[in-house]
Nucleic acid binder design. Structure first.
Lengths: 154, 154
DNA sequence: TATTGTTATACTCTATAACTATA
DNA sequence: TATAGTTATAGAGTATAACAATA
């Protein structure tokens, strides 16, 4: 692939891997963007919806940390979702600085409508890999992701 | 991870994998955004710089296709890069509809300045995985990425 | 002093659709 | 008819820094 940069073989391998990872992500995101469009949902909005659905109501800084985004970004995306009635901010008992983000009934309905098809789609895509290969990939990504996140404060 | 959605085990595995992949990508991109900032470069700009550096001058539609972006998006990002003097559009001999995108000396200098550190950084990050594991990951991602891209027109 | 969240600031990215020029 | 690229449209995402309120 890369022919111009004369790095050593370790560097070449890492670079190749990096490019593949980014490309795979982009392919997935392109597909998703298209699918969610009918529901007026963007990928970041879906990420928040999905996280709240699975983990329950969360404070904003927890969302920011889980989704690896800045506080300001989360505020903005939530503003949009609040306006379209998907989430609501409720006072946090015991800490008056903070809110807890809840799905509204509409938000819950939306994610429950989308999710089965979404998961089925994901499953089909990942069906390119056998069960054992998926387990392998899972372990490799966990190892890698943990290392990356620990290597820098974020 | 996900406890609420009662999908079957294949679906759960695929979903888990999906989330890990997205997260790993986001971690990497966050790091890059931070690193490139000193050079006034965004991740998409770096992607174009790197692609042109390694593959040589390309037409815009080729760039769009390689980077999985829309034509309009590439036009806009190139506009910005042209304004900051990183690339130039040269007439394509034999097809007057088209341009060929070249790195300017400044663009070349920029990528050559950044690239060694960038690759070294990538290598360190991926150093969490042994050589064999990296090869595994590489193969899995290739298989997966190809399948995703073929499963839909793009 | 540190933390939670908002606001202000300023851009960048993104896609789609309509359009122009050329093939 | 099809392709290369631009422009218009419209909006979303992103970070940082400064800030207010609270812990």
């Amino acid at each position: 692939m890369a022919t111009k940069y004369q790095g050593n073989s370790e560097e070449k391998r890492a670079l190749d891997l990096f490019i593949k990872l980014m490309r795979t992500h982009d392919s997935l995101e392109n597909k998703l963007r298209h699918e969610f469009r009918d529901f007026k949902l963007t990928p970041p909005q879906f990420g928040i919806l999905e996280t709240l659905y699975h983990l329950g109501p969360l404070q904003q800084h927890v969302l920011a940390s889980k989704l690896l985004k800045s506080a300001g970004n989360i505020t903005r995306v939530l503003d949009g979702m609040q306006e379209s009635g998907l989430i609501e901010r409720r006072a946090e008992p015991g800490d008056r600085r903070s809110f807890r983000i809840h799905l509204t009934p509409k938000g819950k309905k939306t994610i429950e409508k989308i999710f089965p098809d979404f998961v089925a789609g994901i499953r089909t895509l990942f069906g390119a890999l056998a069960a054992g290969e998926q387990e392998q990939l899972n372990q490799l990504l966990r190892k890698l992701g943990t290392h990356i996140r620990h290597s820098y404060k974020e």
